[in-house]
């Protein structure tokens, strides 16, 4: 099981601060969340990065999620 913590923007859709789910990859997680809250998948993937156990990963759609991980969806970060 993994814990997904929602940002304030996502929470406006989910109504929950966090959920615990079974999802071995980010792609599977996004699909699962989109099934539960239609449209959330787009919000969590367009211009977004994923932090898994504190490590920020851009382009994370195919990333594995270890069991017990804490996952955050955050805006993608660029830089100058």
């Amino acid at each position: 099981m993994i814990t997904v913590k929602f940002s304030a923007t996502a929470k406006a859709v989910t109504g929950e601060d966090e959920i615990t789910v079974e999802a071995p990859t980010v792609r599977r997680l996004v699909r699962l969340l989109d099934e539960r809250w239609p449209g959330l998948g787009d919000q969590l993937t367009e211009g977004m990065a994923v932090a898994i156990n504190g490590e920020i990963i851009p382009d994370a759609l195919y990333e594995d999620i270890p069991d017990g991980a804490e996952v955050h969806f955050i805006p993608a970060i660029g830089g100058g």
Partner: peptide, 16 residues
């Protein structure tokens, strides 16, 4: 008030 290892960053993840 300083952020340090284990503190949750305002954008979500916990700082290493």
């Amino acid at each position: 008030n300083a952020a340090k290892e284990g503190v949750q960053a305002p954008y979500g993840p916990v700082f290493p």
